[in-house]
Design a protein around this nucleic acid. Structure first.
Length: 221
DNA sequence: ATCTGATCATCT
DNA sequence: AGATGATCAGAT
């Protein structure tokens, strides 16, 4: 197991060393077998990169590199270098609590600093041969923070006033809320319009691919 | 081609 | 149950 990086520059150096390598080259180092596809191993690439870089948050609701407060995200790109998928940020608490104010929210903490690792994700290309790209560090600009906060507040307002039915993935400019569950039968706690506890589908926050595409573009200007 | 809703694996 | 890592796949 790789030890956690002590400094941001150490982390960036480690990430930079991966760029240009294929997933099989990286997996070899860790004696890990590359699956044939991601159908039943959807998080495999992210988990591999985490191990390489020494992420230590495990399953805790915290940034991956706890000491540095940095979150790690892979960014899947198609053959033309376009972002293929939205980016999961965190699960959302649907009942009132300490994390239901923007200032204390998990979204804010996780997006404070993000290390993005572009990875080839063209379905036609075998997983083992897909290459890792140049990492880039992102801290939201004041303007980006404002929109993220607006998105978060408008969605969470619906959540906390029991209007879950009005939430769909088309709300939010940068952030959206979508199901995040093992299946459609998964349930978690929420509240209805009268404040009663109900059971509903678990949801998570995601960054739109449109938005992360802009981050990628800016990073390489 | 893009977007939304649904789903898969693993760990505590 | 609920957190982590995400991508799948049908609809638009």
């Amino acid at each position: 197991m790789t030890s956690p990086p002590r400094t941001e520059s150490e982390l960036l150096a480690r990430a930079g060393a991966l760029s240009g390598l294929t997933l099989s080259q990286i997996a070899e180092t860790y004696r890990v077998t590359v699956p044939d596809n991601l159908l039943t191993r959807k998080g495999w690439v992210g988990e591999l990169i985490e191990r390489c870089l020494g992420a230590d948050a495990g399953t805790r609701p915290e940034p991956d590199f706890r000491q540095l407060g940095i979150e790690l995200k892979t960014l899947p790109l198609d053959r033309d270098g376009r972002v293929r998928e939205s980016t999961f940020v965190c699960t959302a608490s649907l009942i009132n609590g300490p994390g239901t104010r923007w200032e204390n929210s998990l979204v804010r903490r996780k997006l404070d600093t993000v290390l993005w690792i572009p990875v080839e994700a063209d379905r036609e290309r075998p997983l083992a041969g897909r290459r890792v790209g140049n990492p880039f560090l992102w801290r939201p600009s004041p303007a980006q923070w404002r929109i993220l906060e607006q998105d978060w507040n408008s969605i969470m307002d619906l959540v906390l006033t029991g209007r879950l039915g009005e939430i769909s993935a088309n709300r939010g400019r940068y952030l959206q809320m979508r199901p995040k569950a093992a299946s459609g039968r998964s349930l978690c706690e929420a509240i209805d319009a009268d404040g009663n506890r109900i059971r509903t589908l678990p949801r998570g926050f995601y960054l739109r691919a449109r938005f992360t595409s802009e981050l990628l573009k800016q990073a390489y200007l």
